[in-house]
Write a protein that binds this DNA or RNA. Structure first.
Lengths: 131, 131
DNA sequence: GATATAACTAATAATTATTACTATTATTAA
DNA sequence: TTAATAATAGTAATAATTATTAGTTATATC
C-alpha cells in the first residue's frame, strides 16, 4: 500500500486550484506555481493533479478543447464553456439523478454518471462583439 | 473562395463512417481505409474528417478519453461510454431544448447547445465481470 | 537524534494525438 | 488537352500527457 507523503508542491497546487475558479489547465497551474516554486517541473504538476483527482480532492474536466482542466470543486455540477475565448463557468444548477434513470432505459449497460457541458458565447465576448 | 474538389479518399472515409456505428477515432478510420487505399496517409484522414465536420456531413465527438471520435449521424443525440472498454453507444433518446433554457438562467452569456455523455459499464463488460 | 527506506522531486525521454509543410498527383474548368 | 488548382502522400513539427530515471526529502523505526 502506498502511503502518501506530505509535499509542499502538492499543497501549493491544491491551494492554487482552490483559490481560483477559472478551471485552469495543467499548464496554467504550472505557470502559477512557478511563482512560488520556480524550479517545479511540469511533470510534477501533472503527477500531483492526477494524484489529487485519484484521491477525490479535485476533479478533471474535459470540455472538448483537447486539454484537461481541473476544478477544486468536487461537487458534481455543470459547466458552461465559451466558444470564443474558451473560458469556463460553473453552473449553480441542480443535477437531477433522474436523467441517468431516463437514459438507462436506452442502454444495455449500467449508467452511473453523466457529464454535461453547455456551449455558447460568454458575457464579456458578447460585449466585445457589440462594441 | 476555396472550391471543393472530389476525392475518392474522402468519399471512402465518409462511406466508412456511415457503415459503422462504433464512433471510431481518426486512427481507427485510417486503419479501415488502408484496406482500400493502402497508401493513404494519416494526415489525409485527419484533414478529410475535419473537412467533413466543417461541411456538416459528420460530427466530432469528444467523450473525454483524449481522442476525437467521429460519427456520421449528425442528428444531435446523446452517447453512452463504457469506462472499461471505452466503447461508445448511441442513445435513441430525445434531446429537449428545455435543458438549455433551464441552464440559461444561471449564465450571463448566451447558451446555444449542450453535450451530454453518460458513463458506466457496457453490457458485454458487465458479462465479463460475472463470468 | 541517527538512519533506512519509500515516496518525493526535477529533468528528460517517450508516447499519443494532431496539425503543418512540401513536392507530386488528380480533378475540373476553359 | 491543357492549365489552374485542390488534394494527396510522406514527412516533420507541435502540443498534451505519461513514463522513466537519478537524485532529494520526509518519516517511521531504531
Amino acid at each position: 500500500m502506498k502511503q502518501l507523503k506530505y509535499s509542499r508542491q502538492r499543497e501549493s497546487i491544491k491551494a492554487c486550484l482552490m483559490a481560483r475558479h477559472d478551471h485552469p489547465t495543467a499548464d496554467t497551474v504550472y505557470a502559477a506555481i512557478r511563482e512560488e516554486f520556480p524550479s517545479i517541473s511540469l511533470g510534477t504538476v501533472y503527477r500531483n493533479l492526477n494524484l489529487l483527482v485519484e484521491l477525490g480532492e479535485i476533479q478533471k474536466l474535459r470540455c472538448g478543447d483537447g486539454a484537461d482542466h481541473f476544478d477544486a470543486d468536487i461537487r458534481p455540477h455543470y459547466h458552461f464553456m465559451c466558444r470564443e475565448c474558451g473560458c469556463i463557468e460553473d453552473l449553480p444548477m441542480e443535477i437531477s439523478p433522474e436523467i441517468n434513470e431516463q437514459a438507462q432505459k436506452y442502454v444495455h449497460g449500467k449508467i452511473d454518471s453523466h457529464t454535461t457541458y453547455f456551449y455558447g458565447v460568454c458575457h464579456s465576448c458578447l460585449e466585445k462583439k457589440t462594441s
